[in-house]
Design a protein around this nucleic acid. Sequence first.
DNA 1: TGGTACACTGACTATACAGTCAGTGGGCTG
DNA 2: CAGCCCACTGACTGTATAGTCAGTGTACCA
Lengths: 205, 205
Amino acid sequence: MPVLGKTKQEVLTEFRTAEILEAARRVFAERGFHEATVDDIAEAAGVAKGTVYLYYHSKRDIYWAALKHGIAALLEELEKEMAGSKTMAGKIHAFIATKMRYFEQHRDFFKIYYSEFGNAFAHPTQVHEEFKDLYNRQARLLDPVLQEGIRQKAFRNIRRGATAAVIADVTRGAITQRLLGWSKGDVENEIEFIFDMVWKGIGTR
Amino acid sequence: MPVLGKTKQEVLTEFRTAEILEAARRVFAERGFHEATVDDIAEAAGVAKGTVYLYYHSKRDIYWAALKHGIAALLEELEKEMAGSKTMAGKIHAFIATKMRYFEQHRDFFKIYYSEFGNAFAHPTQVHEEFKDLYNRQARLLDPVLQEGIRQKAFRNIRRGATAAVIADVTRGAITQRLLGWSKGDVENEIEFIFDMVWKGIGTR
DNA sequence: TGGTACACTGACTATACAGTCAGTGGGCTG
DNA sequence: CAGCCCACTGACTGTATAGTCAGTGTACCA
């Protein structure tokens, strides 16, 4: 008997699903996929192991859900922030800044996200095709900007794909350095540094 | 009874150690650390599992040995090639080119190397301190070059460490793209592209 | 050629953990 | 307030595999 669009059961399912996902994110980030146990996740979520399996089909499933959820949220923020800038420089700056701030605030998620690249080598499965797709959507956010830049002769007309990859990689590298504690200092400074280097690197002059 | 500096036992030990290491590199690259079994490695090396444990203390040990061996070889090539160039541009170019060519030729090793970054998050152990050290030695190869560039006012006087990291990251990113099959084309072209972008990115003008 | 040393083997043990399912009890309904 | 429903539990099962060690056979030496 649905009231206000949701049955009690739906509300409960949503709550448990989110609760377990959140716990899983913490546990996977701390231990990595293989070292984390489903019992760990259950304990972190404050439920018994059996309950976890009422809401997720398998351990892999939980991991994948955590990954997908985080990527989707990042993509959304990237889209929003980039749309907020009208200039090319502004859009590229927004891309770098948003990504760095997002991961600065979701360090747990970054660890999961990052280690998935390692897995993408070891297990080229169907799941990783989907991962690749989500990843590529990020690169595609940059594409229209680069295209416009090339049209205006502000950037060199070469290798849009590779250029987008470079921007993403430099950003990811900077985040990695920070999260490993190999680089300290203010995020905002780092953002300016990265943007500056990228901007000069891709420009015609 | 040592003859020619080596006893028969020493020769055998060396042979087996190398044989197992080589097999391990292939197996770890294909399956990743956790999915690979010691039986797999033994089979790939053409020996029984017990034999593997005559030469290595544990599975982690084998993995670490494979990683260390590859990094050391890369470092050696980087040093040699960079020393072969006298100019700043030449040295930076040599760094990028050598690294890309090395990984292009040792794809198996790159997969192990790369996934260790993921692990460095999950298990901040003593082993990873050692890994960090080996990694940093690469960055330190660039340091004198950047220092010289700054002295000559060819580069901006900021953040040598971060700049070195960016160079390493862009290179690593390009290799990742290639090995995942997300970017094709000639390696030499890619090297020029990366170098060009880096060179402009760090320059004063 | 008989005997010994030792590199090698692979069946075995111990452990860890993903996934299951019979049982429980709290809350809702009639 | 009786009784049922079902979300939840956690002990249990099956399996995978790291690491061990008693036994084997070959190469070498006397």
